[in-house]
Design a binder for these strands. Sequence first.
RNA 1: CGGGCUGUGGCGCAGCUUGGUUAGCGCGCUUGACUGGGGGUCAAGAGGUCCCGGGUUCAAAUCCCGGCAGCCCGACCA
Length: 485
Amino acid sequence: MILDDGSATGLERTPGSAGTLTARSSDFPQWYQEVIAGAELADNGPVRGTMVIRPWGYAIWEHLQAELDARIKDAGVENAYFPLLIPQSFLELEARHVEGFSPELAVVTHGGGRRLEEPAVVRPTSETVINHYFAKWVHSHRDLPMMVNQWANVVRWELRPRLFLRTTEFLWQEGHTVHATSEEAREFALRILTGVYLETMEGVAGIPVLAGHKTARERFAGAEQTWTCEGMMGDGKALQMGTSHELGQNFARAFGIQFSDASGQLQYPWQTSWGVSTRLVGALVMAHGDDYGLRLPPALAPSEVVVLVVRDDEAVRRAAGSLVEGLRASGRRVRVDDRTSSGFGRRSVEWERKGVPVRIEVGPRDLAEQSVTVVVRHRRTKHRVGVDEVLGFVSRVLDQVTTDLRAEAEEALRSRTVDVPDLDAAIEAAASGLALVPWAAIGLGGEERLASQGLSVRCLRREDGGLAGPSDEDTSLVAVVGRAY
RNA sequence: CGGGCUGUGGCGCAGCUUGGUUAGCGCGCUUGACUGGGGGUCAAGAGGUCCCGGGUUCAAAUCCCGGCAGCCCGACCA
């Protein structure tokens, strides 16, 4: 590939050199493997389906965490921590919950060199332990709402792992709340869905999502209603990026959570739970990655700017140093690459693959002209910028990146989403994207047929794209149908 | 659990059909020089239980038998 200034990139020289990644994802687009491997985000773990997140990938996750955590706290939820190991009997208390999760449980049968009296499961999610404690902690309507969140790892023994998107162990955030009324619970589940998840995904990550609720078939095990954010990846497949569940009183009844209301009557409370995971890192890669690697929104980039010292030279080093100082003073995360013992090409390709939004090249040629070379990653353009204008230029670019990425992703979503009148048309259209079809034209039998074609209803929404009202059985609902990861 | 396939330096592979010198190649790695504005060039070098066990043979990476491991497709799913 030739850049607009005539220079060439060497990326194509080693097509498919996944190298560090023995990807269990060969059905991903070719570029995905290259991006993951080249960006050094992750490796497979020693146990099948587990994942080692390398520093660059983890740093992206940390930024996502920070964005989510701030919004979760804004919603009034506090962080807490609950045990990794859960007595097996806890899982069995809620019938649909255990039915949904037992096939994918990892069970610990021995400890301290002896067989355990009761096996412990490694949490696949923490509804059961947390509700065990809610039962102890909730007594009065004055205790409500009770809202906790935990950042933790969970284990689900999935049959078919995919790096970042479905690994046996993954990191996530799971929130759990208890409310006095069903209305309040619903309102809160939706607040998390839109005010935390949707806002982070679209506003921070630049990934447009279709929000809606799941059909009964796709609902979380034990929930009355599951709200979801569905994104579309570069290949037209859908990805469930986050869910928020209304649990009704199911867990409250199963775990004996009760409170005395204002009139002294014992009541079962209404609950929610909600989570997003390291899958979001995979979503970022899939949604924004191009043939040259990752493209990161600045808010999530471990470094927003990298200053590349082209050649080992005293004056160049000094110029780079003062550039870094200036950028840091303006609040940017900046990294210097002065590893002049490796070639320039190698280093620039590395940062391109890692997705650093802006690269500033400083070399003798630039200094001679009192300028630097600014490379904008997401557009792959190079600009000669006067030394005095760099800060302003970089700042304008960084402010624009997320908007540009989102606009591109929105266009991709729009161009691969079609309105269709019936099930047959939906099946045809969903082969290459998403189909919007009247829910009334599908129904339970229709979902069965979709499943046989490798398709599913990703979510249900109102005709205008809004979320459904309190009554689920709205006949005017529109189903989003597609293939999914 | 069904259906495909693969095990050969760190990674990716060739060699196997038709047994035969010292098991090759690319990438990576080490050292040096020249370079350095998109994975640069040249030279020298290190690195192997050819998955394991048994068998056939003068001779096995190669043929036969038996294990083991892993990958892909499907079912399950944040």
